[in-house]
Simulated scan of single mutants.
Amino acid sequence: MTRVVLMVYAAALLPCLASAKRTAPAIVAPVIHEGIRYVAPNDDGRRALIEAWDVQTNKKLWELTVFTNRIDPTLEEDVQWVFIKALSVEDGVLLVTSENARKYQIDLKTKAIKESEPRLSQASQAVGQHHDIPEALKRAIANGFLAKDYDVSFHVNPFYLHGDFNGDGKIDIAVLVRQHSTGKIGIAIVRGATNKVTILGAGTAIGNGGDDFEWMDSWHVYSKERARHAAGETGIPHLRGDALLVSKSEAASALIYWNGKRYVWFQQGD
């Protein structure tokens, strides 16, 4: 009888184990400031919550949503969750760091939330300090092609890649950006021959990637030579130039490539 019960329990548990594709969030150490304990419970994958508790009475004073996670219904939900990783207090400001390295400042008097991320003006200074960054990216920033509506985003390393993405024999630059008006993440491809900028994500939808690449935590160049060798085995499409392989750890990945008219999406995993 016991064996039957265990088998039934295991059968019921199996689908849950199969669908859980991300590890449990970190247990964040609370911080205490002026008699108040600030806690990140990390119990809701769709929003990152901060709770404030009175140390003496252990009474919850308030709670605040720091950020929310937009969920793409076509992807596994749990791998899109982003939780809080660390808390600290400095000069009356609660500093919150997320798993994807985004940083937020909470004014403990007004509860106003501000995200801390370098803007393009700061990016221009950073670009000038690194001689290995291609001229095309420097020109695109200096000439204002990106600055009007987008910030350079540094939340994934590397924040830029280079390759011949449209197959014209010139080196193009792909850089991570964040749209000013919405905060959505995407990729700006700067054409090496003309400095023309194409936005993918960051408010402009493409394939299953949608219009926000916040889910993406890694990317690299997938060369056309590599695709040529793999085409017969994996169904990789013919590439005119290099492609971008974008992915979410332990979940989906896709190729973004130029088909002669526009950049398109080729799903590789779910």
Score class of each variant (00 low, 15 high):
Ile84Ser: 05
Ala52Asp: 06
Trp62Gln: 03
Leu61His: 12
Asn69Ala: 10
Gln56Lys: 14
Leu64Thr: 02
Phe67Gln: 08
Lys60Tyr: 11
Ala86Ser: 15
Lys60Ile: 04
Phe67His: 03
Leu87Asn: 01
Phe83Asn: 14
Val66Ala: 01
Glu76Leu: 05
Thr65Ala: 05
Thr57Ala: 04
Ile84Gly: 09
Phe67Glu: 09
Leu61Gln: 14
Leu87Gly: 01
Ile71Cys: 12
Glu63Tyr: 08
Leu75Gln: 15
Lys59Thr: 14
Leu64Ser: 01
Leu61Glu: 14
Thr68Cys: 11
Asp54Trp: 00
Leu75Asp: 14
Glu63Cys: 02
Val93Lys: 00
Lys59Ser: 13
Val66Arg: 02
Asp78Ser: 09
Asn58Cys: 05
Asp72Val: 07
Lys60Cys: 11
Thr74Leu: 15
Ser88Gly: 05
Glu77Trp: 08
Ile84Lys: 01
Lys59Val: 14
Asp72Pro: 12
Phe83Glu: 10
Leu61Asn: 12
Val79Arg: 03
Thr74Ile: 14
Trp53Tyr: 09
Ala86His: 14
Ala86Gly: 14
Gln80Ile: 05
Ser88Glu: 06
Glu77Ala: 11
Leu87Cys: 02
Asp72Gln: 11
Thr57Ile: 03
Asp91Leu: 01
Lys85Pro: 09
Phe83Thr: 11
Phe83Tyr: 15
Asn58Pro: 02
Val93Met: 04
Leu61Phe: 08
Thr74Asp: 15
Lys59Asp: 15
Leu75Tyr: 15
Glu63Trp: 06
Ser88His: 01
Ile71Leu: 13
Val79Lys: 05
Trp53Thr: 02
Val93Ser: 00
Asn69Pro: 12
Thr65Leu: 03
Gln80Thr: 08
Val55Trp: 02
Ala86Trp: 12
Leu75Phe: 15
Ala86Met: 09
Lys59Gly: 12
Val93Gln: 00
Asp72Phe: 13
